Amino acid sequence: MKLLAANGFRLAALALLLILLFRTEWLAPLFIPLTNNNAPPIYTQNSLASLAAGHLELVLISIAASSVLAVLGGIFVTRSSGAEFLPLSRAIANAGQTFPPVAVLAIAVPATGFGMAPTLIALFLYGLLPIFENTVSGLKQVPPAVLDAADGMGMNTRQRLISVELPLAMPLILEGLKVATVINIGTATIGSTVAAKGLGEVIIAGLISDNTAFILQGGLIVGLMAVLIYDVMGLAESAITRKMGLRAD
């Protein structure tokens, strides 16, 4: 029953997202009451599908970069040679979320100019903490007995990391990746303030023109993308961990 309800929600959310992206005019009667002074109920200055694609591009590039650095950093500080750098690494990862993204944009724009670059820097920094912390936690939770068994099998440090530690830490790493991705889907809306292509353009246009219909369109698309992508990543995580034998069918 729960599975049917979950699948029904996924299909309904996906259908609504597709309508918003490709057939927004079908929903015009619902948005008209949210406008003032005969303002247009549907955002048409740019294709919503194109803006969504640009939004996801920002998220994917930033998350890929954050994942590489955070996972490598997590591996480094859980080795004996890098353990002393854990407090510093944690402080750097925390700093990425301590500074508001708007402040990062303000600092980055003079150096990189307007567009994707400052937005990617802000999103990159914002995505580090969840992935880094989950990588560290996952690697530290590997049972010592398992590590001893790997050593007893003659595995060197590299083999033990790749064949034992990372697979066992994978569920937590993937969970951190999911959280970082959802955070960045929402945060990427600020990129439109510095001319990066994304759904923040629709929301900002609505705020400037006092058009709630625009704000709702942008917000709904961002929210639906976050929910559906989180859900898909959760299914992928379950499939991966099940294949590794870390979760029962």
Results as ranks from 00 to 15, higher is better:
residue 144 P to M: 08
residue 19 I to N: 04
residue 69 L to Y: 02
residue 176 G to V: 04
residue 84 E to S: 15
residue 62 S to W: 03
residue 238 S to G: 14
residue 9 F to I: 13
residue 167 P to V: 07
residue 154 G to D: 11
residue 122 A to C: 05
residue 176 G to K: 07
residue 61 I to T: 10
residue 90 R to E: 13
residue 197 K to Y: 13
residue 239 A to R: 14
residue 138 G to T: 01
residue 244 M to F: 09
residue 6 A to C: 02
residue 125 L to P: 05
residue 107 I to A: 11
residue 111 A to W: 13
residue 86 L to D: 12
residue 230 Y to K: 13
residue 5 A to D: 01
residue 89 S to M: 15
residue 52 A to E: 04
residue 133 E to H: 09
residue 241 T to W: 00
residue 204 I to L: 15
residue 214 F to A: 01
residue 15 A to S: 12
residue 89 S to I: 09
residue 196 A to M: 08
residue 227 V to M: 13
residue 194 V to N: 06
residue 204 I to T: 12
residue 57 E to L: 15
residue 181 T to D: 00
residue 192 S to K: 07
residue 138 G to D: 06
residue 95 A to K: 10
residue 113 G to A: 10
residue 78 T to R: 11
residue 182 V to K: 07
residue 2 K to G: 12
residue 169 A to S: 10
residue 70 A to K: 00
residue 216 L to Q: 01
residue 212 T to H: 11
residue 133 E to N: 12
residue 81 S to P: 10
residue 178 K to H: 07
residue 193 T to W: 08
residue 62 S to D: 02
residue 76 F to Q: 05
residue 200 G to F: 01
residue 175 E to T: 15
residue 175 E to D: 15
residue 34 L to Q: 01
residue 165 E to C: 07
residue 97 Q to N: 15
residue 223 G to K: 00
residue 79 R to M: 03
residue 54 G to K: 00
residue 168 L to P: 10
residue 112 T to W: 13
residue 195 A to N: 13
residue 80 S to T: 14
residue 239 A to L: 12
residue 184 N to L: 09
residue 197 K to E: 13
residue 54 G to T: 03
residue 1 M to H: 11
residue 182 V to L: 06
residue 99 F to R: 09
residue 186 G to K: 04
residue 42 I to C: 01
residue 148 D to V: 13
residue 44 T to N: 08
residue 14 L to C: 11
residue 62 S to F: 03
residue 66 S to W: 00
residue 56 L to P: 06
residue 94 N to L: 12
residue 180 A to Q: 02
residue 152 G to C: 10
residue 150 A to C: 11
residue 106 A to F: 13
residue 90 R to Q: 14
residue 144 P to F: 05
residue 70 A to L: 03
residue 31 F to N: 02
residue 176 G to F: 06
residue 45 Q to A: 14
residue 231 D to S: 15
residue 92 I to N: 08
residue 118 P to H: 04
residue 158 R to I: 14
residue 204 I to E: 10
residue 162 I to C: 14
residue 246 L to V: 01
residue 226 A to C: 03
